[in-house]
Amino acid sequence: MTGKRRLKEHTRFLLMALPGALFIFVFLLLPILSIIVFSFWRTEVYELYADWNLDNYRVLLTEPTYMIFLWRSFTTAVVVAFTCLVFGWPIAYFIARYGGRYRLLMILALAAPFFTGIILRVSALQGIMGPVGAFNMVLMTFGMQPIEIIMFSRVATGIGLVYLYMPFMVTAIYLSLLNFDFELLEVAKINGARPWRAFIEITWPLNWMGTAIGLILVFVPSMAASVTPIFLGGPNGASFGSVLGKQFGETGTWAFGSAMGVILFAVSSLVIYLVWLSVDLQRSGFTGKEA
């Protein structure tokens, strides 16, 4: 008889789960810890000095411009996340329910635009929505006024962000619906629930966790958006993210940039925490393990 000594289940779990977890710990969590440290340092001529101080935070919290940028990014992100939610739900539902064997293809078709870089796509959006863009050109050809609100404005930035991150929302809800038992809806209907009632009582709560993940997946990059506002936002479009990016580009003020990063991280984490509080694992249908 051959056969090696069996490994304990727990050992097996750790052997398989730990490499990836360690990878993420070393290359994500440690870097974030390090910028928290650097945010209390000082930069001089593209070099960091361990000269502990609170100046970066003092400037950030007292100079109104930064707080305005932060507030602007935050509100844009909230609006974008909810827009994606409203439009994303029926779309994801349609794919999961009626997509049949083409479901995977339908979802991949949402991801495929990412094969084209963000800059090309956003500048193409600019080309479509801008003052001499295709959209307004058509309007003017028919003797109508061009729609000004979609040129170089926060609305334009918002449309751009919805454009970029809507696929995340749809995919998150779709993945959740994939494991949802649609027969439960029939049970609800037989017990007298009208379609809307069945949705609110059954579908929505059981898929709230996937929806919450979708909201976060849209909110987080929208809040940190830097490229889109530069292209579509016009002269007043500067966002917290684009100013943050500048600290690591032209100006090279890394310590200050780190502090901005920490604030961005803190705000996003707070929002994630608030969303997470609303997820009741017992009632989300997530039991951790099937059967």
Binding site: S34, G261, S268
Partner: peptide
Amino acid sequence: LFVANLLIGISSLLF
């Protein structure tokens, strides 16, 4: 998933 690309970019640059 919950950390923006921009933050991953700058923090790993500095790290």
